[in-house]
């Protein structure tokens, strides 16, 4: 039973995550939007989903399928902001998002710096 559950979970993760990426790809092809704009659109979708409280239901269903695409980053920012705003008042809204996502951004910056020290870009 647990094995079946795991398989279903992974299939859902694969399908939802894949669909998100396919949707973004469709936007690129059809609208000529630059990747940066599409990233922002998906990010804001995440913020919106979390803001209206829908995100956690989707997350329970799709797990990494929704949290790994940039939507999850947006939702995480919004959730952090909302939670801290509720805890310590309106100034919390400014810090919460960053605090919650600081793990990822922090490691990205540090690891990028480290990688920069070791590797150089190559032309292929």
């Amino acid at each position: 039973m647990t094995i079946l559950n795991t398989i279903t979970t992974y299939l859902t993760v694969f399908a939802v995550g894949g669909l998100m990426c396919a949707l973004a790809q469709l936007l690129i092809i059809k609208t000529k939007l630059t990747p940066a704009r599409i990233l922002v659109i998906f990010l804001l979708t995440g913020v919106l989903l979390e803001g209206i409280g829908v995100y956690k239901y989707i997350n329970d269903f799709a797990q990494a399928g929704i949290s790994v695409p940039i939507i999850g980053f947006g939702a995480s920012l919004a959730r952090g902001s909302i939670e801290m705003a509720r805890q310590i008042g309106f100034i919390g809204a400014f810090a919460g998002g960053l605090v919650r996502t600081a793990f990822g951004v922090g490691v990205a910056v540090v690891a990028s710096y480290a990688v920069t020290l070791i590797f150089s870009p190559r032309s292929k």
Partner: peptide, 22 residues
């Protein structure tokens, strides 16, 4: 340079989400 839009918009709109929620 490349990822700036995501970080900036993320911070701005999540802050707004937090404030609105409050």
């Amino acid at each position: 340079t490349v990822v700036g839009p995501v970080v900036v918009n993320g911070i701005v709109w999540s802050t707004i989400a937090g404030l609105l929620n409050l």
